[in-house]
Simulated scan of single mutants.
Amino acid sequence: MSVPKSNYTLKAKVLNRIAKHFIYWIALIVFFGVVWGTSDDNYYRNFAIQLYSLPSRLILVYATLYVLIPHFFLKKRFISFTIFYFLLLTIVSLAIQRPVMLYHVQPTYLPDWNVSNFFTVTELMNTILDVNLAAVIPLGASFYRIWLSSNSQDQKLEKGTAESSEEEKFIYLKVEKRLEKIFFKDIVYIESLKNYIKVKTTEKEIVAYKSLTAMQNSLPESKFLRVHRSFIICLDFVDSFSPNQITLRDENIPIGRSYKKKVKKMLGYF
């Protein structure tokens, strides 16, 4: 019986991810071992210290990646995510990293390091920062992938148009903290407001976060025409026009000098 190709693909992805993680941790140990080893000319000691630092770092990174991010960050519970992250960081630093450093690493590898008090503030802060340092790259990469995925979904929604018929074509526009569905057939005109646009429809007006040029690229050229650097009109709602302005539903829209040639070509006048 042959194994489905999808199983091979999934297995390859898993192995690829494991390999990337393994390479990251090896690179982290080598980097800091070389950096600190160069400073005191004792590479063996610094590589050993980096190895003893791994348990707390591994717990922090993977608990954040596979527990905190899915349960809090992806659900937009950012305050809870921040609180639990710093709580986790404090716990692994004080319960794992600090005892290992104080009771094993310092006596064995740093006998001249005279710190006997567990709760020395500077040492506690150094421990927390040291543990957190290992999480910067993997968490940064994870947040970047989340942002890319979210941005890609927003773009698909904004560009998304129904293909079944002309009447059903639409666009999603970002209005405050939501995406609002606007059908092309309802748009009368669009006006630029710097980084925002005002969309006048047959029923309402909305202000959305989008540039006029980006909006123009999303609209069908057969139905919409840019007549001014600040205006795009829907040809279906043109009531009358002259060399200087177009009237749509009793509203006068100016025609820009540089757009007159194209307006004349589309409307066949003056």
Rank of each mutant, 00 (worst) to 15 (best):
L235R: 10
T38K: 13
Y85A: 06
L54E: 10
E167I: 11
S149Y: 03
E251N: 08
A162V: 13
G160M: 09
F86E: 09
G140A: 02
R77L: 10
L58G: 13
N126K: 06
K169C: 07
V35L: 14
E205A: 09
F32N: 08
S150I: 02
E163N: 07
K177M: 08
Q97H: 15
Q155M: 13
F119R: 06
K159R: 13
P254E: 07
Y43C: 03
L235N: 05
N132S: 15
L68R: 03
F73A: 04
I187M: 07
H228A: 09
S240V: 11
G37W: 04
V136N: 08
Y172C: 05
Y269V: 00
G140I: 06
S2C: 07
M1N: 00
R226I: 10
I137A: 04
K174A: 10
A135M: 12
V175E: 12
L10C: 06
K159Q: 13
L65T: 11
Y189R: 06
I187K: 05
R57C: 15
A12G: 14
L89P: 02
I128K: 01
I232F: 06
K76H: 12
S242P: 01
K181R: 15
V227N: 01
R226N: 02
S165A: 14
D40Q: 09
K200Q: 02
L15T: 10
P138V: 03
L89I: 07
N195Y: 08
Y196S: 04
L129W: 00
L51E: 02
S242A: 06
S258I: 05
G140V: 07
L60K: 12
M215K: 01
N126Q: 00
I79D: 10
I146Y: 03
